[in-house]
Amino acid sequence: MLSSIISIVNTTLMYSAPLIFGAMSGVVSENAGVVNVGIEGIMTFGAFVGAAVGFYTQDPWLGLLSGSLAGVILAVLHALASVSFKADQTISGMALNFIGPGLSLFLCRLLFNNKTTTTRVANKLPKIFNVVDVSVLLALLITIFLWFILYKTKWGLRIRSVGEHPAAADTLGINVTKVRYMSVIISGLLAGAGGAAMTLGVVSQFTPTAISGQGFIALAAVIFGKWTPQGAYGACLLFAVAQALSVTFGGGRIDIPSEFLSMLPYVLTIVVLILFVGRSMAPSANGKPYKKGKR
């Protein structure tokens, strides 16, 4: 019994950390009115750069930092296309989902003797009290910080106003382009860090399947959490708990076929969404490029 509870808690925390990074990435950019469906691609690139730098420098923190910066590079592309050139944000986000894995594999083969996996890093990110990955704590701190910024500071108000009504924000002297650029860049930073947290914490090397759907689940968590940091955090935890339950009680420990048990996270998410979450409202200008003077 005790071992089951410990297993559930451990798995939940381990599973949720990369998801939370991804979800916060989505929250920042979508609150500023830029849809980011490219989280998966950015996470993959962050995962690769994080693992590669972590291997060469033997410093996981430097790896995490580089992974985040790698995320920024892709995010700038997204911002360039969707904010400056006013392209369709979904399309440019999807492009990231192709560029991220493609670029990662290309560079991986270039740097690691034509292999599609990196060599294992010597040092992983530390664990708190030797039990919980440090990324779990980081994810919580970032969520609190983001909540504070978005709802308690004037920068947060600017970000949200740009996402709700960019024309009004513009009239009041807020530089819409600048705020959106900043938000997308921070979004890339967080997604890149999430990817690196995966390859420097959960496992210790990059593989082509290192990021397998986490970015898309994070995207769903943003909507599930009604575009708030705390809501998205909860959604990620819920998903991770369900995953932990399916792991802890799988393997013939209870008499449910493994296939059904594996559906649990998805089924539970849908059920909670229908029963408890209710109508969720996206930021009004989410997904709409802003054109000066257009009403």
């Binding site: 297993s7 798995t11 599973y15």
Partner: peptide, 12 residues
């Protein structure tokens, strides 16, 4: 593909 799940199952 899901390495995190593999880790969770094996840890368990």
């Amino acid at each position: 593909a899901d390495a995190a799940k593999g880790k969770a199952i094996a840890s368990r």
